[in-house]
Computed example of a mutant assay.
Amino acid sequence: MKRILNGKALVPVVLALGLVAGCATTPKEEPAAKGPSEVSQAIDSAKSAIASAKSVNWIWRDTEKFLKQAEAAAAKGDDATAIKLANKARSQAELAVDQYYLETAKVLYAEAGNASGLTAEQKSTLNAAGIAIGNAEGRKAYDLLNPLVTELRAASIKVEVVRGDSLWSISGKSDVYNNPYQWPLIYKANRDQIKDADLIYPGQTLTVDRNPTAAEVDAAVDHARNRGAWSIGVVEESDRNYLGGSLELK
């Protein structure tokens, strides 16, 4: 039924409201994709940590046992126990890796510390590594020491013997040891091709370790100063003793 007001028809208000309501309908939202559960995340983290420990062959005896127990608990739906055990396995594996790097760093630190002729930069690196070891920062100390020791181990040179050379004169060169009394170091490093320390030949190529330890230097100098009488073509008993009595003549 229409109502007439001043000659005009009025459309029912209800109809207009219905049209507006129909236009305002909100479409359904798609459910958000679920990420990995807390349990699976804990187990995956434990597996990753265990793999790292195995890669350095330094893992505690019961660590993998805790991981298996965590997986069994997860299979039964016991999430709380699974997470607890997985976190325990991860923590143990991480501690094992830290311990590996700390113990390895200690060995490298001792080796680098015994080397002579370190540059200022090398000494600074060694000092920083010592502080890291003192703070039980094994990985940091290892990362500092590993390249340093690799550098020191590779610090050797080759010297070709020319006419008139002797181990004494070669050792005394400024680009070798700058100290003739350290000649036994060259003798020992090249024992496979030097039959008599008093007799070397032109054309021979000798290896010189540029970073012997302080103990090695002391032993070499002591031997050079106290070697006793010598003669060409004869292997002196004192030389045999310096080499540990294992000189092989060819």
Rank of each mutant, 00 (worst) to 15 (best):
109 Y>A: 08
127 N>M: 04
159 V>A: 08
134 G>C: 10
148 L>N: 02
178 N>Y: 00
139 R>F: 06
151 E>H: 04
97 V>K: 08
106 K>F: 11
128 A>C: 00
92 Q>P: 00
160 E>M: 12
172 G>N: 05
176 V>M: 07
134 G>L: 03
92 Q>I: 04
162 V>C: 08
99 Q>V: 06
92 Q>H: 05
137 E>H: 09
91 S>C: 00
103 E>G: 09
106 K>Q: 15
154 A>M: 02
183 W>I: 03
129 A>G: 12
96 A>R: 04
130 G>K: 02
123 K>P: 08
163 R>C: 00
88 K>V: 07
157 I>C: 00
124 S>T: 08
113 G>F: 03
157 I>A: 11
110 A>V: 03
101 Y>A: 04
139 R>P: 03
116 S>Y: 01
158 K>R: 05
108 L>Y: 14
130 G>W: 00
165 D>I: 02
95 L>C: 02
163 R>V: 01
104 T>D: 14
148 L>E: 03
145 L>D: 11
163 R>A: 13
101 Y>W: 02
176 V>E: 08
151 E>G: 14
112 A>L: 01
169 S>A: 10
104 T>Y: 06
157 I>D: 08
142 Y>Q: 11
150 T>W: 01
165 D>H: 01
149 V>R: 12
149 V>D: 11
161 V>F: 15
111 E>L: 12
155 A>M: 04
116 S>E: 14
96 A>K: 07
130 G>T: 00
95 L>Q: 15
153 R>E: 13
148 L>V: 05
175 D>S: 06
104 T>F: 03
135 N>T: 00
111 E>F: 14
130 G>Q: 01
151 E>R: 10
181 Y>N: 13
128 A>S: 13
155 A>K: 08
105 A>L: 04
175 D>I: 00
155 A>S: 13
108 L>H: 01
180 P>S: 15
155 A>G: 05
114 N>E: 14
128 A>D: 07
122 Q>M: 07
171 S>D: 03
93 A>T: 06
118 L>G: 07
152 L>W: 06
179 N>Y: 05
173 K>G: 06
98 D>R: 14
120 A>W: 06
148 L>G: 03
127 N>Y: 02
110 A>K: 15
97 V>A: 06
94 E>A: 02
87 N>L: 10
143 D>T: 10
169 S>Q: 12
95 L>H: 08
182 Q>G: 01
166 S>L: 01
160 E>N: 03
148 L>P: 10
94 E>M: 09
133 I>M: 15
92 Q>M: 11
86 A>R: 06
153 R>P: 07
169 S>E: 13
126 L>D: 09
135 N>K: 15
150 T>Y: 03
160 E>G: 07
93 A>G: 13
136 A>W: 10
113 G>M: 09
164 G>Y: 05
119 T>W: 12
181 Y>F: 12
166 S>G: 15
126 L>W: 07
106 K>C: 05
126 L>A: 12
152 L>Q: 04
114 N>Q: 15
85 L>M: 14
